[in-house]
């Protein structure tokens, strides 16, 4: 299942969700509109349960902006995921996007952040306490 699709929606979501051990790695390929953000959120929440994931990494480096809606969606995702036993790390926030978020006074509660995917995996390993060595090192060496 390369691109997740919700029933009833014809257009594929331009996001890939990879499973790496107990972690879900979400890479977004293009700017997403509000409907697509919401779909991604619902899809991830569903997959956390189905795959019994302990952590989610969302790479937002290709998102052009993180405005109030995108931030709220990620925050809600992290909140729901935590209630279901998974931690969320957002990686790849560019300096420009970070400055815009500061000026907008946007808070990302429940969300952990890391600079890039590698740091994000390490962070998740620490947070979940379940250092899945195979998954962790596997990604690292491919790095």
């Amino acid at each position: 299942m390369p691109s997740p699709e919700l029933p009833g929606t014809s257009e594929p979501l331009r996001v890939s969700i990879l499973t790496q051990g107990q972690f879900l790695i979400v890479s977004i390929h293009t700017a997403l509109d509000d409907t697509q953000m919401t779909r991604l959120q619902e899809d991830l929440i569903e997959q956390v349960g189905r795959q019994r994931s302990r952590g989610i990494i969302v790479d937002v480096s290709t998102l052009d902006v993180l405005d109030s809606f995108a931030t709220r969606t990620l925050t809600q995702l992290a909140h729901v995921a935590r209630l279901r036993g998974a931690e969320t790390v957002v990686v790849g926030i560019s300096p420009e996007v970070a400055i815009a978020m500061v000026q907008l006074s946007l808070q990302m509660s429940f969300v952990h952040t890391a600079l890039d995917l590698e740091e994000g995996l390490q962070r998740l390993g620490e947070l979940t306490g379940a250092l899945d060595e195979a998954a962790f090192l596997g990604t690292r060496s491919r790095g």
Partner: peptide
């Protein structure tokens, strides 16, 4: 259309010589 609007805004801002940071603020 929201995405189109903010991407257009970023392009125009960049063309007018705004820095990447300002262009992102404008797009946001």
């Amino acid at each position: 259309d929201v995405v189109t609007a903010r991407q257009t805004g970023r392009q125009v801002a960049a063309r007018l010589g705004f820095s990447p940071t300002d262009s992102t603020l404008i797009a946001t």
